[in-house]
Amino acid sequence: MPPRKSKAKTGPKAKEPAKEVAGEEESSDGVASTGEDAKEQIPTDPKPTSTEEPPSKKRKNAAPTDNPQKAPRRSGRGAPASRPSQEQLLHYMLSPTAQELCRPADETADLAHRGPIRTYSSSILNPYEELLCAVILSRPISHRLGLRTIRTVLNEPYNFSSAKATRDAGSEKRHQALWDARTQHKDKTAEQIGSLAEVVMERFTSGDDEDGSRMQRVREECEGDVAKEREYMQKSVKGLGKTGLSIFFRRVQWLWDESYPFIDDRTVESLRKLGLPEDGEELRELVELRWGELDTKDLAGDDDSMRKRRALVTVLERAIGSDLEGKHEALLEAAAGS
Rank of each mutant, 00 (worst) to 15 (best):
K7W: 14
P12T: 10
K15M: 09
K15G: 13
S33T: 15
T34A: 11
G35E: 14
E40I: 10
K47V: 15
T51P: 07
E53C: 07
P54S: 14
P54I: 10
N61K: 15
T65L: 13
P68R: 11
P68W: 10
A71C: 02
P72N: 06
R74F: 04
G78T: 08
P80V: 14
P80M: 12
Q86I: 05
E87H: 09
Q88M: 14
L94I: 03
S95I: 02
S95F: 09
P96S: 05
A98V: 04
A98P: 01
C102L: 06
E107S: 14
P116R: 04
T119H: 09
T119L: 11
L125K: 10
P127F: 11
Y128S: 07
Y128E: 06
E130Q: 15
A134W: 02
I136H: 01
L137I: 04
I141Q: 02
G146K: 00
G146W: 01
I150Y: 03
E156A: 01
N159D: 01
F160P: 01
F160A: 03
S162N: 00
S162F: 00
D168Q: 03
H175M: 10
L178T: 02
L178Q: 07
R182P: 00
A190N: 04
L196V: 09
V200M: 05
M201Y: 07
F204S: 04
S206C: 10
G212D: 02
S213L: 08
E221V: 15
E221F: 05
E223L: 09
G224E: 06
D225P: 00
Y232P: 00
G239D: 08
L240Q: 01
L240I: 08
G241R: 07
K242N: 08
F249M: 02
Q253G: 02
W254Q: 13
L255K: 12
I263G: 07
D265R: 11
T267P: 03
T267C: 12
K273R: 13
L274M: 06
R284Y: 12
L286A: 06
W291R: 02
V313R: 04
T314D: 09
E317R: 13
S322Q: 03
D323M: 11
E325P: 01
G326C: 04
K327Q: 13
S338E: 14
